[in-house]
């Protein structure tokens, strides 16, 4: 991946985190599960997060296909301590956004869908 692309992805993640300060971490992975850019605050392994994001998105696509949901745009995982949103960024990438459990979901979607669109354009 070119330096310019990498920088553009990092910037997209940075502006997402500035727009929603509660976000705990964000990452861009390829749809085959390799990390392309990351802004994670914890000690999560980006390689593992990227692989899991690709798995969840890939499975989500098939579920959507099977149940006539059309092209998958996003899927999410909710826990008592946090939520993880996964957005399709075009057909090459996936955007992962990690938030606390009590976050304003509407705001997260608003900003993250925008970010996913610009990431799709970068890729």
């Amino acid at each position: 991946m070119s330096v310019g692309k990498q920088e553009a992805l990092q910037n997209a993640l940075k502006s997402l985190r500035i727009a929603i300060p509660e976000v705990r971490g964000a990452l861009v992975a390829s749809t085959d599960g390799l990390p392309m850019a990351q802004n994670l605050s914890g000690n999560e392994d980006p390689n593992r997060v990227a692989a899991m994001a690709a798995t969840a998105l890939g499975l989500g696509k098939r579920i959507s296909d099977t149940l006539n949901g059309g092209t998958l745009t996003e899927t999410s995982v909710s826990g008592t301590e946090g939520q993880i949103f996964l957005y399709a960024a075009g057909n090459k990438g996936v955007l992962v956004v990690v938030t606390p459990a009590n976050v304003n979901i509407g705001l997260v979607h608003l900003e993250a869908r925008d970010a996913a669109r610009s990431i799709a354009n970068i890729l």
Partner: peptide, 10 residues
């Protein structure tokens, strides 16, 4: 077959 093939980037 239900498969989850994605484009390989490597």
């Amino acid at each position: 077959v239900v498969n989850t093939d994605e484009t390989a980037s490597e």
